[in-house]
Design a protein around this nucleic acid. Structure first.
Ligand SMILES: [Mn+2]
Ligand SMILES: [Mn+2]
Ligand SMILES: [Zn+2]
Ligand SMILES: [Zn+2]
Lengths: 156, 156
DNA sequence: ATTAAAATGAGAATAATTCTCATTAACAAA
DNA sequence: TTTGTTAATGAGAATTATTCTCATTTTAAT
């Protein structure tokens, strides 16, 4: 607990402030939890984590705030194929945007950096191209590869 | 109704047969419906379509079969961000694999072909690369761009 | 410290999906 | 074509994830 530095807290404070939103205890807890893990947590899991660090927050508050944090771009939401939304912190300092390898069998998730092999450049070009062609204002994207992780492809 | 040709039906029959699965009336109806539309339908919507073409099927049967059809690769499932699975036919003859532009506001979906700008080549290379690096057996992928469609970015 | 606006939390409500199980349909073999 | 085995269906109950409601509390600017 108390993972967020003073700098981070004030950064989040300002970010929320712009939208007339307050840096409340539950919000701090959610950001704290997401910042501290490399996992892709569901709302329920985040809820349980708040209990652990005794920054207890109601489940509906968790949902409400995840929706907000996603909307203003502080966290990312995606579906690993098991019908429940998963969340992760949007950007970590010094880390570039990433994409996912998702195991269909055990639902484990591997992050891989989008910076290698100029994937980033490719996407950027693609976005411009699609944007023009379809008059579509692209704000973000997700790239997921599905299959079998090493463990799962090994045992049967 | 009765959109599937005899050829298509026997193709599906064989495809299912390999898995000891039968080409039942509800399955034919689902394939028929998905083959006939360019939309990305939810289970509920497919259910309602079966009523329209009087190939009435129970909702639980729809769910069960969509799961099967996705598993054996005849249909694709994805989430447009509104917490419900959407389905579409996997491959149409003569059409290449495609990806999506999804409007965050009205949830409309635009298909775009993956063949332009050698996106396909890029992905293929990427898959090989990731596969090696992470010992991950990639079976398929999804690429979605999120943002605002023309209509939604215009009106306010 | 005051105060208005924003946010919370408990739990009810809704919506999507899965499960159960008695009945029926598919289809290979005779 | 009939038959037998096995897969599949359908109705509805059960489960799960998410949203909503509203009385109470917290935030943070003044
Ligand atoms: Mn990730
Ligand atoms: Mn599509
Ligand atoms: Zn796995
Ligand atoms: Zn739109």
């Amino acid at each position: 607990m108390a993972n967020l530095s003073a700098t981070e807290i004030s950064w989040y404070y300002n970010r929320l402030n712009k939208c007339c939103c307050r840096l409340t205890k539950p919000r701090r807890a959610i950001l704290d939890i997401l910042d501290d893990t490399r996992k892709h947590l569901s709302a329920e899991q985040i809820y349980k984590e708040t209990l652990k660090i005794s920054s207890n927050a109601g489940l509906s508050t968790i949902y409400r705030n995840l929706e907000l944090l996603v909307r203003i771009g502080l966290t990312w939401e995606f579906d690993a194929g098991d019908n429940k939304a998963r969340y992760e912190i949007a950007k970590r300092p010094g880390e570039s945007h990433h994409h996912h390898l998702i195991c269909k069998k055990c639902n484990s998730i591997i992050d891989y950096s989008a910076s290698v092999d100029n994937e980033k450049d490719f996407i950027k070009k693609r976005e411009k191209n699609l944007s023009n062609k379809y008059n579509f204002k692209i704000e973000n994207h997700s790239i997921d590869f599905f299959g079998l992780c090493y463990k799962c492809s090994k045992n049967k």
